[in-house]
Amino acid sequence: MEENAISGDDNTHWFHSNGIITSIDNSQKKICVDISQKNSFFDGTNITLNCNKSSLDITYLEAGQEITFYFFENNVLDTEVAIEKLNIVTP
């Protein structure tokens, strides 16, 4: 799955990607993910999702789940990305 814009211009639209959760750090609100399919945003397949946005609750997530996560392009920093939203693909 390639990244897709949801709406807006270069500074306001969300992109998304899928990955499998490998670990969760609830105290730091970060999730490590193996990207399901290589895309132009991430150099490798392992990235960290920064979930510090106050509306994100990651306490119900578990390693092994596939998720879709949404982000702004300017929030991608090498192997870490601050995300805006996430959805579980496989429970």
Rank of each mutant, 00 (worst) to 15 (best):
T59I: 00
T90F: 02
D9Y: 13
E84P: 00
D10L: 09
E2G: 07
D10F: 10
S7P: 00
M1E: 11
M1P: 04
S17K: 07
G64Y: 12
A63H: 02
S40H: 08
T68C: 15
C51D: 03
F41M: 04
V89G: 03
H13N: 09
T68S: 15
I6P: 01
K85V: 00
I88Y: 01
T45R: 09
T79Q: 13
I67R: 14
S36M: 11
V89I: 14
D25C: 09
A5W: 12
L86Q: 03
D10W: 07
N74E: 09
S23I: 00
M1I: 01
S27L: 09
T12I: 00
I83Q: 04
T68F: 01
L56H: 05
I31L: 07
N75K: 14
E3V: 08
F15Y: 15
I47R: 06
H16M: 12
N50A: 04
V33N: 10
D25M: 08
T68Q: 15
I58F: 07
S23G: 13
I31H: 05
D34S: 13
K29A: 09
K85R: 15
E80R: 07
H13C: 06
G64A: 13
N4S: 13
T22E: 15
D25I: 08
G64N: 12
N46C: 06
V89H: 05
S23Q: 11
S55H: 14
I20C: 06
C51M: 08
Q37Y: 14
N26Q: 09
H13G: 02
N11V: 05
F15R: 07
N39E: 00
P91E: 14
Y60P: 00
E66N: 11
D57W: 01
P91L: 08
L49G: 06
D25W: 13
Q28S: 10
S17N: 14
I58M: 05
T68R: 15
A82L: 11
W14V: 02
H13A: 04
I21K: 11
S40F: 02
V81H: 06
